[in-house]
Computed example of a mutant assay.
Amino acid sequence: MPIIEVNLLEGRPPEAKERLIQALTDAAIDAIGAPRESVRVILREMAPAHFAVGGQSLAAKAAGAKQVKVEEDWSDDS
């Protein structure tokens, strides 16, 4: 029984997650001949604050990018 675990950042619509589940199930069937009813898919969603790259959470990185954009908008003299 294949068990496929996927970690995702939260925010995707339910339809997108259903497509992912179907595609992963189909891939397991095609790759190893697993019976459809034996394929298990686990989706784990996490907040951007709970995932980091290079020592900075994605939430902090996004907040920094918004701050830079606001500063650029205010300093634009055109």
Rank of each mutant, 00 (worst) to 15 (best):
M1F: 03
M1R: 10
P2W: 03
P2K: 07
I3E: 00
I3P: 00
I4V: 15
E5V: 00
V6W: 09
V6Q: 11
N7L: 12
L8I: 14
L8G: 05
L9C: 08
L9M: 14
E10M: 11
E10R: 13
G11D: 02
G11T: 08
G11V: 09
R12V: 04
R12S: 05
R12Q: 05
E15T: 13
E15K: 12
A16T: 12
A16E: 06
K17E: 09
E18G: 02
E18K: 14
E18R: 15
E18I: 06
L20G: 05
Q22K: 13
A23P: 06
A23I: 07
L24F: 06
D26W: 00
D26G: 00
D26P: 02
A27C: 11
A28P: 01
A28G: 03
A28S: 08
I29R: 08
D30T: 07
D30I: 06
I32M: 14
G33I: 07
G33P: 00
P35I: 01
P35D: 11
P35E: 09
R36H: 11
R36E: 14
E37N: 07
S38D: 06
S38P: 01
S38H: 10
S38Y: 03
V39Q: 00
V39A: 00
V41S: 05
V41G: 03
I42T: 08
L43V: 15
L43H: 09
A47E: 15
P48T: 10
A49T: 12
H50P: 01
H50Y: 09
H50T: 03
F51V: 07
V53G: 02
V53N: 05
G54Y: 10
G54N: 04
G55N: 07
Q56D: 05
A59R: 12
A59N: 02
A60F: 01
A62L: 06
A62H: 09
A62T: 07
A63W: 04
G64H: 03
G64N: 11
A65T: 12
A65K: 14
K66R: 15
Q67A: 15
Q67D: 14
V68F: 12
V68L: 15
V68D: 12
K69S: 14
V70T: 14
V70G: 02
V70I: 14
E71N: 13
E71G: 03
W74H: 11
S75L: 10
D76L: 07
D77A: 03
S78R: 11
S78M: 04
S78F: 12
